Simulated assay, not measured.
Amino acid sequence: AEEMVQAGVMDGVDVVIGTHLWSPLERGKIGIVYGPMMAAPDRFFIRIIGKGGHGAMPHQTIDAIAIGAQVVTNLQHIVSRYVDPLEPLVLSVTQFVAGTAHNVLPGEVEIQGTVRTFDETLRRTVPQWMERIVKGITEAHGASYEFQFDYGYRPVINYDEVTRVIEETTRELFGEEAVARLKPNMGGEDFSAFLQKAPGSFFYVGAGNEEKGIIYPHHHPRFTIDEDALEIGVQLFVGATLKLLAEAV
C-alpha cells in the first residue's frame, strides 16, 4: 500500500474503505471496529556475540545461549513492568537460533521477533528500552551485541463517520444480526497507508463456516475460507460506496 500511495493511487480520493476476510467470524457477519483496529507491526533482530567452545568446558567460553536466554526473559519485563497495563503492547520473541552440535557452545545467538503498538510515542520508546536491556545483559557477561529495529506499517485507526456508514449499510443489506462489534487486535495491515491520505474504515467480512469444516485460523496450514463470503463483501462494498457518495452530495 505504501508503494501504491507513492505511485499516486490516493490522489484525489475523498474516502477509502477496505476489508479483510476473517475466518474466526462466521460467514454472514460483518466485523465492525470503531477507532483503533489493528496495530503497527514492527520487527526486531538481535545478535548476541560471545565466545564459543566445548560444552564440557563452559568456563573457557562466553555462553551466548545463556546470555540470550536472559535477554529473552528480561524483554518480557517491558510489557509487564514498563508500560501501563491498560496500554496495548505486544512484544513477542519468535525466533531463537543457535548452535550446531550437542557438545559445542556456539559463539553467537540470533533472536528475532515482533513488537505491536497503537501509540506512536510508545512505538518509538520500546526500541530504546529493548536496546538498554540487551546492552546491559551482554556487557555484564563480557559479550557484545547487534540490535536492529525495523518499523513496519502504521496502525489502522478507523474514522468513526465512515465506520458508521459501513455499520448502517450492513444493517440495511443483511439485517441487525449481521453486525458484529469487535475489539481491536494486534495484527497489522498495510491499509493504514491509505488512511494517512484520506478518512476511511477497514472492516471484516466473516469467512468461517463450522458446518463446512472451515474453522482454522489465519496462517494455519489448513486455513481456507467460505467463498460464499465473497459475494457478501462485494454487496457491502457497492452499498457502502453508494451511501458514501449520496452523503457527499
Rank of each mutant, 00 (worst) to 15 (best):
L242E: 10
W129T: 00
G31K: 10
G206E: 11
A248L: 12
A101C: 00
K29A: 08
E139R: 10
F96E: 04
Q112K: 13
Y151W: 05
G8R: 00
R47M: 12
I49W: 08
F202V: 09
I111K: 02
V115T: 09
I232Q: 13
V79G: 03
E167Y: 06
S92C: 06
V104C: 00
Y151F: 12
G142N: 02
V234N: 08
N185A: 15
P155N: 04
L182V: 12
V13K: 08
A69C: 15
G35Q: 12
I17S: 03
V179S: 03
I65N: 10
H54G: 11
I232N: 09
P217W: 03
L21A: 14
R132I: 02
T94F: 01
V126M: 00
Q95V: 12
M57A: 15
E231P: 05
F202T: 02
T100L: 09
E26N: 12
N158Q: 03
F194H: 12
G187L: 11
I111M: 02
V71A: 07
F96G: 07
L245G: 03
Q235P: 10
A66I: 11
D190I: 07
A246Y: 12
I17K: 11
D228H: 06
I225K: 01
Q60T: 13
H218R: 05
S201A: 15
F223G: 02
S23I: 15
D119P: 01
G213N: 04
R222D: 09
A98F: 08
P41Y: 10
T241E: 07
G50N: 04
I225P: 01
E210A: 15
G12N: 12
V156I: 02
E189K: 05
S201L: 04
A1P: 13
I46Y: 12
V90N: 05
P155Q: 08
P155Y: 06
L91K: 10
I137N: 01
T241S: 11
H219N: 11
F149H: 13
Y151H: 01
V16I: 15
L89G: 03
E146S: 07
V72A: 05
A39M: 04
R154N: 11
G53W: 03
F118Y: 11
D84S: 07
H102V: 10
